[in-house]
Nucleic acid binder design. Structure first.
Lengths: 338, 338
DNA sequence: TTGAAAGCGATACCAC
DNA sequence: GTGGTATCGCTTTCAA
């Protein structure tokens, strides 16, 4: 492999010292305009691109941030949140010379190990903490390692800088929408209880119903998966007194729910109204198109990246609140049947 | 941020020179068993983890490989191939101390720039070339930069080490399956023509039909997207003489096709049989469940990673052939209606 | 404003 | 078998 152009080559070409090259190319003061121009020209001619290796050793930064998907790699295939989230991260860090190091971790034990290695080996300058769980062990790890980290949608009082998008408002809108359609019997299909966002959504659902003086009705686990939605539909639709409206805690389980409801001969929304939560693209293409609460994974990723890079630079940052997720009414919700 | 323990600390602790520590910890010869033990013990006590930064500067390796998703970040949300592919890469490189650097690139021009930067900045030791296009400019770039690279599903004669999974066999099986069901009028929904895998699938489809002495029938573009499938259905089902069986070049467009067919009052498979290509998980959950050709993105990722790391180590490698993608018969294909 | 030189944390070569 | 030491490419003092 041929050796690349280094800062020495540029310095030689411009007839200056490498320290001047460094200063000039990093827009630091202490270089005359004339010298700077000469240097920039020389760098351009030579096609100089600073070596990330060299600068990270000297500068004590790796210029990369880490994201660990701490579930089976298959979630990347099925969970559309990550696509948007990663896209948002990219759009911020790319321009700043940072790269995203992605890890997937099949088993929970490996997750901890990953964070430890990333931090100790100084492979990344900071990490994103997504899909937070109750008493998430990662918090202690990053704190112990003094590794900059940003939390995604944690509960209030989370000890690290965080990005949040309010879910309560959107869920309240769902309930109001369903109430206005005349629904009186409801059910909720939730996510795994160890996830904070599962709890948040269920609590918001309960609270919203309560504010309308409505009984919560059955609450079953949909596991955030398509299959979970299938199962939930079986369980909910088998009851003697069926709900006329169901909210699923994410779009994927809502898709499963609808498919199974249709399979069992129910019409959506004529027999039963169904909503999801997330706002994945696919939902808009379904028949019926899925009414849902649209979140902003891309924006969340963008803001999280901003916070993380600031934290890495040693700045103290405030938490960020993304505008609330809001109701998107499509075709899977309609007037109560009876 | 507290300074980490370095190789110097370990050397001091064990009372030896850093060079011995380096040799001992990397299982290189030239260290007595006794010394090695002392060093390993010292390293363990101190919790020493070698700095990737230091070793990459000295060792001329970054211990990371790059993947550029050279389309809009949204594809990560909609295209399930990446999840499995990335998971496969991870499962190989993780154990070898490598990390995956992921880039998304909204605009085509930026793609080239990305590769150039990754290579010139020596941020990665090698890259994956996926979704190859006809006369793909990336090939020249990596060759010019002497950047190790591995191609995914290229045509024969591709100048770089590659991983291929045969598509022809699976597609032939689709045709045979449909013919055995009595179908005589066919249509094909293809992908964007600049992609090599689009062409490969269409050619295989044509070849298979020819081998059964059947006319190809209409071939329309489904853009590999759900919406493209929707549009393709509109176009194909509006014809006076409709096909009774349709193959879509990927699952996503097949899903769109089915949804739109149903929307227009056609029953799948009673009125029209539909198959996809990819074998995404979601396909199994649809109603009707999607008949398709199952590929192995995870295995492809794994093997591609293996090739890439070998190439990086300077070994010359042979191309890898994954066992062919094969037909999965589910519910979206049935006997010809008339 | 400029340049010389000291690290950063490893690897690798070369004497001893 | 061992321990110095040059080296990788850059950032960052600190003199001049």
């Amino acid at each position: 492999m041929p050796d690349r152009v280094t800062i020495n080559d540029v310095a030689a070409r411009a007839g200056v010292a490498i320290s001047s090259v460094s200063s000039a190319l990093n827009d630091r003061p202490g270089v005359s305009e004339a010298t700077r121009k000469k240097i920039v020209a020389a760098a351009a001619e030579l096609g100089f691109v600073p070596s990330v290796r060299g600068r990270s050793l000297a500068g004590k930064k790796t210029f990369s941030v880490g994201l660990v998907v701490h579930r089976d790699p298959d979630v990347l295939e099925m969970d559309p949140f990550f696509g948007g989230f990663i896209g948002g991260i990219e759009s911020y860090i790319d321009e700043r010379g940072f790269a995203l190091v992605l890890h997937t971790s099949p088993s929970p034990e490996q997750v901890i190990d990953r964070y430890r290695k990333m931090a100790a080996g100084r492979r990344v300058d900071g990490v994103f903490l997504n899909e937070l769980e109750v008493d998430d062990p990662r918090v202690e790890i990053v704190q112990g390692l003094a590794l900059p980290a940003v939390g995604i949608n944690p509960d209030p009082g989370f000890p690290l800088p965080s990005v949040r998008q309010d879910h309560a408002e959107g869920i309240r809108q769902v309930v109001q929408h369903l109430v206005e359609l005349g629904h009186e019997r409801f059910a909720f299909v939730g996510g795994p209880e160890q996830f904070i966002h599962s709890r948040q959504r269920e609590l918001a659902w309960r609270a919203a119903l309560t504010s309308f003086d409505i009984e919560p009705g059955p609450i079953v686990d949909g596991r955030f998966t398509y299959e979970g939605g299938l199962d939930a539909a079986d369980s909910i639709l088998a009851a003697r007194i069926r709900p006329t409206a169901v909210m699923c805690a994410n779009d994927l389980s809502a898709m499963g729910f609808i498919a199974q409801a249709q399979h069992r001969g129910f019409s959506v929304p004529a027999d039963i109204s169904v909503t999801g939560y997330d706002g994945i693209q696919l939902g808009g293409y379904l028949r019926p198109a899925l009414s849902t609460v649209r979140t902003s994974p891309k924006l969340i990723g963008f803001e999280a990246a901003r916070l993380l890079l600031s934290t890495i630079d040693g700045e103290s940052v405030d938490d960020v609140d993304i505008p609330p997720a809001t109701l998107v009414v499509r075709d899977s919700t309609g007037p109560a049947s009876s």
